[in-house]
Computed example of a mutant assay.
Amino acid sequence: MQEMVDMICKELILRKNYLPSKNPIKTIYFGGGTPSLLSLAQMDQILEVIAKHYSLALKEMTLEANPDDLQPSKLLELKALGFDRLSIGIQSFDEQILKFYNRAHNAKESMHAIALAKQAGFQKLSVDLIYGFPSPDHQIWKKDLEIALGQDPGHISSYCLTVEPKTALGNWTKKGVFQPASEDFAAEQFEILQDTMDQSGYIQYEISNFAREEAFALHNTNYWKAIPYLGIGPSAHSFDGQDRGSNRAHNAHYIKNLQQNQPVFEVDSMIPMDLLNEYILTSIRTIWGTDLAYITERFDLDLLKENQKILKKLTEEGLVENLKNHLVLTRRGKLLADSIAASLFIS
C-alpha cells in the first residue's frame, strides 16, 4: 500500500501543471476502491504533496468510505485532516441483499456509522444506495429509502444495479444463477425513489443524486458542469477542458511505469463536436440543464436550430422543456436521460 501511495504522490508532482493555472483547486475527492483503508499518515502524505505543489482554494474535501471503516477515533482524525464530506457506501439496509453484494457491514453498522460521523462533526454526509435488485415487489426498496431518510443524511446517491460482463454477477447471469430485474421493474423503483425524495424535501439535482438545497456535492457538480479536473492513481480519468484521458488500470503496471519514469496517462484527443456532445450528455442530467448560450459561445452553434425537429418532438412528448435558454429534462424525461442526450448529439 505504501508503495502505491508513494507513486500517487510522484504522479501528483509530475502532473502539477495539467490543470489551467488560473483556476485554483476547489475540491478534493478521495474515491475509487476503498480509500478509507489508507492510514491517516498516508492520507496526510498525499494532502501535503497537494498543498505544496498546487494552488488551493478548497471548498470541499470528500472521502468515500465503507460503514465498517468509520470508527470514532478515525472520524475525528479525518476531520482534523480537513475532510468535511463523507460518501458512505451502504448500498442497502436489507441483510440478505448485503450478503449477496458481499458487503462486510450489516444494516446496524451502517446506521451506527452515520451516527458516529455526525457526532464527529461531519455535517455533509452522502449515503449510496442501489435499486433494481430483483424482488417479488418493491417493499425492500421502500424500506431502504425509509431507513436511509430516517438517518437524515442530507444527501443520497442512488444507482441502478447493472450487470457488467467479466464480473461475478455477469458470470452468474450468463450461467442462469442470477436473473436481473426487468427494465420496467427498475424504472418503477426509480420513480419510487423520485417520489420519496420529493416528499422528503430532497432535490433531484442530478439523475442519480438527491439532496437538500444546501447539501449538493460540489466535486461531482463540477464534473457535470464540464469544469476541468485531475484524476490521480490507477484507472483515474482527467479532463483539462480540451482533452480527456485516463491512467493505466493495472496497479502493478502503474507503479512500475512511475518507478521507471514512464508515462501512465494516455490522452484521448477530442474534437470540438466530441466536447459538445459530452457537455450535452452530462449537463442535461442536472437540474441546471444544457446551457444553450454557452454552446453558442463555445462552439459557435445554435443547438435549437440544429435539432429543431427532435426538440419539437421531445417537447411535445413532455420529456424536455426550455427554461430560460436551458434545456432541462422533465420528470418523465429523467427516465430516458441517456437516450434523449444521444438524440441531441451533433455529428
Rank of each mutant, 00 (worst) to 15 (best):
Q151G: 07
S157Q: 08
S157R: 00
A148K: 01
L145Q: 03
K175Y: 14
G154H: 05
T167A: 12
W172E: 13
L161A: 08
K143F: 05
D152A: 10
D152E: 15
V163P: 05
L149M: 07
S158V: 03
K143N: 12
T162D: 07
D152G: 06
K166W: 14
N171A: 14
T162R: 15
L149G: 06
S157I: 00
E146I: 07
K166E: 15
L169E: 04
Y159H: 12
A148V: 02
A168I: 08
K174S: 11
W172V: 00
G150C: 06
S158K: 04
G176N: 13
N171Y: 14
L145M: 09
E146P: 03
E146T: 05
I156Q: 05
S158W: 03
K142H: 15
L161D: 09
K174T: 12
P165A: 08
G176V: 09
L169Q: 06
I156L: 09
I156E: 00
T173S: 14
H155F: 07
G176W: 05
D152Q: 14
V163I: 15
G154M: 09
S158F: 04
I147K: 04
E164V: 08
T162I: 13
K142R: 15
Y159C: 03
A148L: 02
D144P: 00
E146W: 01
K175T: 10
I156K: 08
G150M: 05
T162A: 10
G150S: 11
E164Q: 14
V163M: 03
G176Y: 12
A168K: 14
K175N: 13
T162K: 14
A168M: 14
Q151Y: 04
Y159S: 02
P153T: 04
D152P: 04
G150A: 09
K143T: 13
L145I: 04
S158C: 15
P153A: 02
S157Y: 03
E164T: 06
P153N: 03
G150Y: 10
G170N: 10
C160T: 05
A168E: 13
H155S: 09
K174G: 04
K143Q: 13
L169W: 04
A168Y: 01
C160N: 08
S157G: 12
D152F: 12
K174H: 13
K174Q: 12
S157D: 10
A148S: 05
W172D: 07
G176R: 11
L149N: 08
